[in-house]
Each structure stands twice: as C-alpha cells, then as structure tokens.
Design a protein around this nucleic acid. Sequence first.
DNA 1: AGCCGATCTAACCGATCGGTCAGTCAATTG
DNA 2: CAATTGACTGACCGATCGGTTAGATCGGCT
Lengths: 243, 243
Amino acid sequence: MREGALFPTREDVHGIKRLAVLREAAASFNHKGYHATSLAEIAESLGVTKAALYHYFPNKNGVLRACFDHAMAACFASLERGRKEGRNGREKLILTLRLYLHQLIDELNCCVVLMEEQALEPEDRLKLVKERDRFERSLRALVKEGIGDGSIVPCDPKLVIFSILGSLNWVSKWFKPGGAWEPDQLVEALTQTFERTLSSSPVAALALSVGDLPTRASSASAVPRYERPEAQSRKKPERASRR
Amino acid sequence: MREGALFPTREDVHGIKRLAVLREAAASFNHKGYHATSLAEIAESLGVTKAALYHYFPNKNGVLRACFDHAMAACFASLERGRKEGRNGREKLILTLRLYLHQLIDELNCCVVLMEEQALEPEDRLKLVKERDRFERSLRALVKEGIGDGSIVPCDPKLVIFSILGSLNWVSKWFKPGGAWEPDQLVEALTQTFERTLSSSPVAALALSVGDLPTRASSASAVPRYERPEAQSRKKPERASRR
DNA sequence: AGCCGATCTAACCGATCGGTCAGTCAATTG
DNA sequence: CAATTGACTGACCGATCGGTTAGATCGGCT
C-alpha cells in the first residue's frame, strides 16, 4: 500500500481487508486452533458472509498458509537484523529472538505461531518445515558461534533452542494485549531471562516485576534496543514483587 | 489394577483397555490436535470400531477430560514430592518440574499437555483452569521461596514460570520416543537448563550433547535423582557436539 | 443347559463445515 | 447513460464426524 494515501485505491482497500481477515483468523487460530475455527465465524466477526472471504483467500488452508508465511518472514527478517547488529553470538541470538517476539505480538495482534503446522496441506507443510528447520539451524549456529566466542555458556545448541522456542511460542497462549504487562515489557523481561540462561557470565538479578520495566513509550527509540547485559540498567529501583 | 495379577479380572481388562484408549487418544490429540482427531481414527488404530469406545468413555470430550485429569494429577503428585524432598525453593521447584516432565513423557507416551484447554466443555474447562491456576500459583510460590532463601535469582515469578512451562509443554511438539535422545537424557538436560536460568549461582557449563547424558538404565535408581548443582556430575567427559 | 451382562459391530441420524454458484449491488469507466 | 468490473450475498451441496440404536457374540455363573 502506498504510504499515507489519502484516497486508497481499490487495491489498497483490498489489501487492507485481506490483512484484516488474516489478523482475525490468526487470532482465532491462535486462541482456539485451526480446526475449531470456522470460516463463518471469522466472516461474522468481520461483518461479512463466509463467501466473501473467498475474495481474499483461495480457501481456509490458504489463510493458514498466509499466517505461516507472515511468521516465517518475521523470523528471517529478525534473524538478518540480529546477525547484522549483534557483536557476538549471544547478542545476535538474543536480538533475533527479541525482534521476532516483538513482531509477533505487535504486528499481527499475536500472530499464529508454529503450532498448527500439521493442519497444512502436505506440500505446504513440507515447505514450511524446510524453512523452519533452516531458521532453527541458523539459531543453533548462533548458539555455536556464541559458545565459540565465549559469550554463551557451553551447552547443547539444539536443546537450548528448543527450550527457548517453547517459551517464545507459548506466549501466544497466555499473553492478552491490554493486560497487566505491555508488549514491550514482556519482550524485555523474556529477553532478560533468555540472556541469563545463555550468558557465560549471567547477571545477578532479573526484573522483580515485569510491570515495572520501561515501555517503548517511555524511551525515545522506536526500535527495541539491545542493552549490554554487563551494564544492565533497570530504570526503577527493584522492590519486592507486588504480584 | 492389582499388582502383578496373573489372571486379570474383567475390571482389570476394562481398565487396561481404557488406558490404551487414553494413550492412543492423548498421542493423537498431542500430535494433531483435538478437533483434527476423529474417534473412528483412534478406534481403528486400536482395532475396534468407534462405537466400542463408548464403553470406556461417555463421549469424545470425556476422553479429553480424562487426559487433563491425568496430567493434573501428575502435576500435583510432582509438586507434593518436590516440596517434600527439595531442601530449598529452587530444589523443590526443579524437582517438581523434573518429575512432572518425566511422568508426561514416560507414563503416557507423551501425554496431552495443557494445550487444548479451549476444547473442553465450559464447566470442565472452568474446573481445569482453576486447578491449573492453583498449580501455577504453587510453582510461583516456590520461586518466591527460592528468592527468599537465596537459592533463586531475584526475578518475576510469574514470568519465569510462564517461560519454563512454555519450554516444558513444547516438548510434546517435537520430542519423539525412539529418537536420538532418551527420555531420561531429555529430562536431565532440560532440568539443567532451568536450573541455570533460576539458580542464584549458575553453573559454568551445561551438557554439550544431550545424547551423552546418562540414562536411567545406566544408573541404579528407578527414581529421577536430584543432583546437587554445586557438585554437578557428568558421567562422561564432555566432548564437542556430534549433532 | 440356560440365563445374563458385558462387549462390540454395522448401520444410521443430525449437525456442522468447507466450498460452490448464480445472481445482486455499487462503483468505476468510457 | 450504458457497460464493465469487483464485492458480496444467500442458498445450496457433499463430506465428515460425533453420537445413538438394535442386535450379534462371548464368557461366566447358577
């Protein structure tokens, strides 16, 4: 879509509506699962009929495919930036995870994660599995790099990545926007946790209350910063958890 | 069922068959999801017809309910033992997690985890959510206890527990018995990782290759032991990952 | 032997859902 | 204004699935 278009063309409208369908579907897939979500439901919550959806997607499975395409694109975009901006294996990995989680939560209102893979058509599924494996291999490579350069504790990269991805993907099961935690705070806090798990020189303390972490609104940067773990800064003094 | 019964009574047979149905269903629910699993499928893979299943469960949702009951019983049994045998907050928590994972993998051939909660009938779901919340609160309490006694790094208990449960529940998505890792090794390695995340004095290195960890067969105890993290013992010397 | 309950099957029912299709409506275009 | 095109509706179809029912089979018990 053109930036800041005052008079959106038909194509713009089409794209906007398509994205709306995708968001609604992704949220429902995430919350109830693919098979438990009917197209009529999605359509109704968008104020149209089921048949209208077929203007934007070839079929139900096509919607799911688009969800995965979106998620995988986020994966690789995060990976690229993480590799570029991190200064060692750990920083690259952590930044990748942070960016990925951020996109997942922010952009698609809790995008479908790699849960309903089995619902894809065999060919699509094969393609996804290939891409996902490539992504996971890249993450493992970052772990190895970190072990090599001394930024990451010696460990089994495969297991550690499985563990971290589990934490990450689980977020969509319990995180609800508008709750006690802002997305920024959640991302920051989870990142801290991963950091401590991986780092060869773990920090002595994590945030005692996620809700006390700074949000993006309170910092100037629109981009999630990577803060040095050695000079870990907590904006407010720690106090006992209020939860 | 009576222990070591040579001539199982009808009730025994009933119970055995019921458990077989439960295992098969749990595996399928886990792998494909509740709604994507048909009763006819489960029946066929057990060599009976769909109607036969109704001798062991009132309906499909009843099977799912039984899965959750089993899982929650495992949760609380683990919790109880963890609380009893751990010597500080961290040990109690880690032991609980270890026992829980062990039961999940071993007993029920990768039991259904708390994923398909939304597929339950409203009343059953309410009951489950209540129980699960109670369990999670207990885990958070152990974290707080650990922070208090100095065994766990200061952190937000809620977030840390969410993170760990994510890793744990994700296991059922990728772990396949008969693969490169034995269940015992997986449990041990994941436990090590959690340990390092939580501990106020993290170890300097984790297992470099999960496949090198000792299995239960190679140790005398039939019960997962809790090894002191300070005196972390690896049966074989570490070597570079072969994966 | 004969009864009885438990087990299981085959056939069927009703509901839901994905997907299709003909046709309506509105906006755009020439 | 007329023609065209895209957006959308309402009705419908076929398939699948959960669940039911009637009856067949088998094993134990009096």
